[in-house]
Every structure is written in C-alpha cells, then in structure tokens.
Amino acid sequence: MDSPTRTNGVALVTGASRGLGAVIAARLAADGHPTAVVYRSGADGARRVVDGIRAAGGTAEAIAADVTDETAVTALVEDAARLLGAPVTTLVVNATGPQPDTDPTEVTWQDHLDQLTFFVKSPTLLMRAVLPGMRAHGGGRIIQIGSDVLERALPQMTPYVAAKAAQHALTECWAQVLGPDGITVNTVAPGWVPVERHAGTAAESLASYAAEVPLRRMGRPEDIAATVAFLASDAASFITGERVKVNGGHTLG
C-alpha cells in the first residue's frame, strides 16, 4: 500500500519498543516522518528500533514515558517536539498492558479499570497533549490501535473487549469535534497478529486460527503498519471516525 507522506510534523508511536509498535514506527519513519519511539520499559528494544530507523536513513528518538500519567504525557509530547524539531502531528496510540483471561462472572471493577486506564485514560491524555500542536500546524492524524475482539466478543476477555469498545467510541466522538481543525481520527483493528509475546504459542493454535481466516494466513505486523501509514498520509485526508479491521476477513459474516 503506497502512502504519500504528510509533510512536516512528528509521528509519535506509543508502545514502540517491540511488537506492532516497533514495526509501525519503522514504517512511518521510512515514509519520512521524524518518529518518537515511545516506551515504558524495554529501553534496549527502543534503542534497537531507533538504530534500525537511522540505519535506513530515517530520523527517530527513543523517549521513555508512562502514557497513563498526565504529567508524564505532557512532558513526552514536549520532549518529542524538542528532540525532533517539530510538533507532533501524527499520534499512534498503541501501548497496552496485560490482557489476562478472566471468568466473566468473576470480573471485578478493578479488572475493568486496568483496561480502561490503557484504552480510555491514556488516549485521552495523549489527545489533549498533542492537540495544541496539531491545531497550530493546521491539522493532524490520531490513529488508535484497536482490536477485532469487538466482533468476536470473547467472554474470557470481557474487560478488554469492553475497553476496546470504549476506545473506538472516543475515535467516533473526537472525529466529529476535531474535524473542523483538519484532524482525522481513526481506529485500526487488527486480528491476531503474532509478535514477540506470542513466541511460545503452539503451532497447532496458529494453524487452527489461520484456517478460520478467509485468506488462510496469520496477520503480519507489516499489514498493520501499512494501514496506519495510509491513514497517516494525505491520501486518507477524507477518512475519519472509521474503524478499519485488518484481519484477513476473519470476522466476516
């Protein structure tokens, strides 16, 4: 998927020291965005991502931050603009936390809060922090990484499913409010895309899942990164408030 690069501005990708975030950050940098590789832990991984971007001719900085803390998020956005020389005009909300399986009849309010912290509180803090720079720039892109669990409604992941639904509700509301500022807001909803944390998954489980996908394969991080890159580009300037499933058709029908 070719994606003409939006000129100027910085791309900030949370949870970018590994997994989907690392590949998304590398893709945006390859498209010409100075990129903030944000991590909470995993400094070595973040440095590897930055080194890879620089080796390929891109511009990037690794920045540590707790994206669930308001003071830290404000400092993060300021640091990204200072280190990379321009305001953040592309925000990719990717950071996540543990996603434990829980009997839905035993779910506690704290279980819900744990997920809402990452998928409602953190996106809200990040949106508010980048908004002044985007408005001053004359526009921007906010891209949230969601999930196709909404369609699958996995009961053992009830708090995660509920939080992901709430996260996309933010996308729809923000798209209406921020549209007049030239800011688009969209959600990319991957299916199961194996990354480092799935290293111990049995081959049988992967094969079983892939057999349910019309395209008969697992998703790749590059599939998600390409979709994010498109939504970050001028080619997607008239797309907002959408939730784009990238799962090979797994949830059709």
Rank of each mutant, 00 (worst) to 15 (best):
T158R: 06
T158G: 04
T158L: 12
P159K: 06
P159L: 13
P159Y: 09
P159R: 07
P159F: 12
Y160F: 08
K164Q: 08
A165H: 10
A165N: 05
A166S: 03
A166D: 04
A169E: 08
A169L: 05
A169N: 01
A169S: 02
L170P: 03
L170D: 01
T171R: 07
T171Q: 04
T171S: 06
E172Q: 03
E172F: 02
C173K: 00
C173P: 00
W174Y: 00
A175N: 03
Q176L: 04
V177W: 03
L178P: 03
L178I: 07
P180C: 11
D181W: 12
I183D: 01
T184I: 05
T184Y: 03
T184K: 02
T184A: 06
V185Y: 00
V185N: 00
V185Q: 01
N186C: 15
N186P: 12
N186K: 12
T187R: 07
V188Q: 01
A189Y: 10
P190Y: 06
G191N: 04
G191R: 01
V193Q: 10
V195T: 15
E196Q: 14
H198F: 14
A199F: 15
A199H: 14
G200L: 12
T201S: 12
A203I: 13
A203C: 08
E204G: 13
E204I: 14
E204K: 14
S205A: 15
S205P: 09
L206A: 14
A207S: 14
A207N: 13
A207L: 09
A207W: 11
Y209R: 15
Y209A: 09
A210D: 08
A210Q: 02
A211D: 15
A211N: 13
E212F: 09
E212R: 15
V213R: 15
P214W: 05
L215P: 14
L215V: 15
L215W: 15
L215F: 14
R216M: 07
R216E: 13
R217T: 12
R217K: 14
G219V: 05
E222V: 10
E222F: 07
D223M: 04
I224E: 06
I224N: 06
A225L: 08
A226T: 02
T227R: 04
T227F: 00
T227G: 08
V228Y: 00
F230D: 01
F230C: 00
L231K: 03
L231I: 09
A232P: 04
S233C: 03
D234I: 13
D234M: 09
D234V: 14
A235S: 11
A235W: 02
A235G: 09
